[in-house]
Structures are given as structure tokens and as C-alpha cells.
Amino acid sequence: MYFPRIIQISRHRHRISYKSSLPSGEWLCGVCRQNIEIDYGAYSCDKCCNYVVHSICALGKDVCDGEDLEGVPEEDDITLGVESFDVISEGVILHFLHDHHLYLQASTLYDENKFCQACVLPIFEGNIYSCIECGFILHETCAQSRRKLQHALHPHPLTLRHLNQYEYVEFECDACDRFCGGFIYGCHLKECDFDLDIRCASISEPVDYQGHEHPLYLALNSEEQPICHSSVGGRNM
């Protein structure tokens, strides 16, 4: 009876509302991927007819901030209208994390001394944006990363920023536990202290992994194995 009526979770783009029971049928939790008993309370999406979440899963601290949004106007998609760069002309952009124009080029040779300033991976073959005034380089895909992101691993929106060379620090990604530099997505709330490197932030569920035949979903905590959408004999594989 004390559960919030309407909440926003990190695993779904729409708000979900509490229902004391569900219509007859088989329901699969959108977070833990386990079956849901229809006679117990659950959260469901009014816009997506088949999205349902266990109450406990929906209110987990890594999934929801617990705020009751009943009566609060629903905001538009936070990722819309916040592009990371302005198009100056064909093949020329101005990225919000760099002061100079970046020019689109095709990289054909590997140079061990050139790294993408966003993902800190080497530059191989492919399209890149480079600065003619300094050594700033971005993979084309990294340049297209949005300023704001809602990620499945955190209940609050994440904002893109540059951990540049002048800070002389590295940060530990809260997803892969690696010490990283370059671009990071961080929570604006200081008490969260949550950061993702741009590579981990780019992963969304479901994950199509070439070593497994079914889609994979993020587990509830780092000690669990990735969750397979399909099950055999009632057990996730």
C-alpha cells in the first residue's frame, strides 16, 4: 500500500504505474526476465501493452529513485534536441567538447600515436573527425554520442563530459571497473558518484552477442551472469 503509484525506471522509456493484479496470461518481468504471478501487484506500462515489472524489481535502487510521479507532467525524451555538435558545412562540425572545427576524413592507415579522444581507442580504418589546429580526433560514431543519456544501469539521466588530459586523473567506470580517460557519462547528482565510459554507455539492452543464440539482458547486479531472454524448464540459461 506504500508503493509509489507512478514511477520512471532506467530500463524503460515510458513511465510505469502500479497495478494490484494483471490480466490472465503469461507475463515476463522487464528487469529480471522471470515470470510474474498475475494475482500479485506489479508495475506496467500504459503505452506498451506487454511491458510489466515485478514491484521489487521496479523499485530497486539501481533501477528507480523511488519518486512518486503521480500528478507530475511527463517530460519529453531527454535525448532529443541535445545533439553533441553543430554542422558548420558539409563534413565540418563544431563539437560542444572542443573549441575548434572538426573535419570529416577517411582513415586508411593505422597510426599507433593517434587515439580517439572519446573512447581512447586507436584510430584504424574508417571515418574520423579531426582538428587541423591540434591533435584532437574523434571516431565518427563517438562524435555522434548524445549529450544526455538514460542508461539501464542508473535511475538518473547521465550527461556527457570530457575527462581531458589537463585534469591528470582517471576514473573507474562503474560498469566495467576499468580506469579510463576520454569522454564519460556521469550523473549530475553528487551523492550518486556514478560514471560510465563512452564504450559501456553505448551498450543498450537487449544485447545481440554472437556467441549466444538468444538476446541478453543486463543482470540486477555485477555478480550475476547476463540474463538470457529464453528459458528452458523455467530456468534462465
Rank of each mutant, 00 (worst) to 15 (best):
M1G: 14
F3T: 08
P4H: 02
R5M: 09
R5F: 05
I6S: 08
H12T: 07
H12D: 06
R15T: 11
R15H: 14
S21P: 03
S21H: 12
P23A: 02
P23R: 12
P23E: 05
C29A: 13
C29E: 07
G30M: 12
D39N: 14
G41T: 04
Y43L: 13
D46N: 14
D46R: 12
C48S: 14
C49R: 15
N50V: 15
N50Y: 15
Y51L: 15
V52M: 11
V53R: 01
I56E: 13
K61E: 15
K61Q: 15
D62H: 15
C64Y: 06
E67N: 13
E70H: 12
V72W: 06
P73H: 06
D76T: 09
L80T: 10
L80Y: 08
F85M: 07
I93C: 07
H95V: 04
H100V: 11
L104F: 01
Q105N: 08
S107V: 02
T108W: 06
L109E: 15
E112Q: 14
C116A: 04
C116T: 01
Q117M: 10
A118H: 02
A118L: 03
I123K: 13
E125Y: 05
G126K: 03
I128L: 06
I128Q: 00
Y129E: 03
Y129N: 03
E133Q: 15
E133P: 01
G135K: 12
A143T: 10
A143S: 14
S145M: 13
R146S: 13
K148A: 04
L149G: 01
A152W: 07
L153F: 09
H154V: 03
H156C: 07
H156I: 03
T159A: 02
L160R: 04
R161C: 09
L163P: 01
L163Q: 08
N164L: 08
N164S: 15
N164I: 05
N164V: 09
Q165V: 12
Y166S: 14
E170C: 10
E170H: 11
E172P: 02
D177Y: 06
D177K: 09
G182K: 01
Y185R: 06
Y185T: 04
C192K: 04
C192I: 10
D193P: 02
D193T: 09
D197G: 00
D197S: 00
R199F: 00
A201S: 09
A201R: 00
A201D: 00
E205H: 01
P206I: 06
D208M: 10
Y209D: 15
G211C: 10
G211V: 00
H212N: 04
H212L: 05
E213Q: 13
Y217P: 01
L218Q: 00
A219H: 07
A219L: 07
N221K: 11
N221P: 10
S222T: 10
P226G: 05
I227F: 04
H229P: 00
V232T: 11
G233C: 09
N236F: 06
M237V: 09
